[in-house]
Design a protein around this nucleic acid. Structure first.
Lengths: 233, 233
DNA sequence: AACGGTATGATTTTCGAAAATATTGGTTTG
DNA sequence: CAAACCAATATTTTCGAAAATCATACCGTT
């Protein structure tokens, strides 16, 4: 009765299109498909084993998320990067994330506190294993995402959470872009710890200030160490 | 040499998919396709004269915009409406639009001022023609959208403008929802005039306050007069 | 009657061929 | 020599048939 003993066709989501969307998104965020790269159907067809129209559906969805650039009649390409875009994404993230943190601190219940504490705990455990290269560890990526997600999860607005998620993905791509050139990770562990404590103790002003610094300094780092990739576009 | 003397295939955009996306969006916003309505391919195929896959692409794009609800393996339907969703959209709009107005007032140049003044002028001209039922006039809809678009157009962030546009569409659908039951339009003309004056005179605090009131009172109106459509979902 | 399973029909989802459009390279013309 | 034109090729876009999946109604059993 096992759905597929050999090789599951759909690892994520029920439809192939949703699955391809997910896999393509991951690859673009991780810069496995570099910014600006043309996305030709022949190549994608071979790589992902799906037909034209299914791929087209996935690319259309990613275009709406801002990770893919659709040029009508001239195909798709990975969304290019630029200093301007990095700045816009950073600003938008600050605007929205700050608001969502405030609302979460205002409204969060016991479950919210537990989620914040436990996701941070897992993040720290993973960081202990390999403190040098966290961004290369896919588990760290997931845990990091889940901690930040937990912080805002009690805000009460699915609409704003969806927007936040898109911006988070776009920002994460920039982090990956500079990861190979960044000499050493900042003291993220300490920052995360401080943010957690401010949130749990319901100190909204402090939490907001820490989050804003966290977001902006990450972006500054990217702008510094990926400068050669941002100016030549 | 005319591209199509009989009947243009693509009225908007270069690809059929983009064209269908546009037409479907308009219909959903205008509630020609009512909230919750199942979107069956047979029906759409006949109505829009496109094939399965093309329609699928359009529906996928609209799902990413929040106007369509994709239920994997069970097709698509027009996104349902609810009091909660209306509230979320309203809150998100206030958060973003307020910020964009501030930035536009800060950065807007002569061209921006001209755009604000001229779009308002056109809006008023159209309102004079038929002051009773502005929302039913498609020209009023376009002019109204363009005035609000002009106000924020100088904010400098394409990212936030795209988010704003999606939220505007979702809000406009709610306005249409209640349009048939609203006894009389509020004094929108006066409100628009006041917003324009505050913006042009670079009174950011006043403009922001007027916009917030404008958005929230519109939403309150919808919640009142479309109550029977919002609670039974 | 209630429940569970199964066949049947309806609907979505996927595919690869075919049509439409863009790009490239070569040829001619001014 | 540059520009404009055209042909040949590469690529995207669209289509409808076929496969996969879901919903419904029917039937037998408890």
């Amino acid at each position: 009765m096992s759905e597929s003993a050999i090789r599951p066709r759909k690892e994520f989501g029920k439809t192939i299109a949703a699955d391809i969307t997910h896999r393509l998104r991951e690859e673009i965020i991780a810069c496995g498909l570099p910014p600006g790269e043309p996305l030709r159907f022949d190549v994608l067809r071979e790589r992902f084993g799906a037909s034209f129209t299914t791929l087209r559906e996935a690319l259309t969805a990613l275009a709406a998320e801002g990770l893919v650039d659709a040029q009508e009649q001239r195909g798709f390409r990975v969304a290019p990067v630029s200093r301007q875009d990095l700045m816009e994404v950073t600003d938008a993230r600050v605007l929205i994330e700050v608001e969502l943190i405030r609302r979460s601190i205002e409204r969060g219940d016991d479950d919210w506190e537990i989620a914040v504490i436990s996701t941070l705990h897992r993040l720290k455990r993973i960081e202990q294993r390999d403190p040098e290269h966290p961004l290369r560890d896919p588990e760290w990526k997931i845990a990091h995402r889940q901690f930040h997600q937990a912080l805002v999860s009690a805000c009460g607005s699915a609409t704003l959470l969806a927007i936040r998620a898109e911006l988070f993905d776009r920002a994460e791509r920039y982090r990956h872009l500079s990861a190979n050139f960044r000499p050493r990770p900042r003291d993220k562990a300490g920052e995360h710890q401080a943010i957690m404590q401010a949130a749990i103790s319901r100190n909204a002003d402090l939490a907001v200030q820490l989050i804003e610094t966290h977001i902006r300094s990450t972006a500054d780092n990217v702008a510094t160490y990926a400068a050669h990739l941002l100016d030549t576009e």
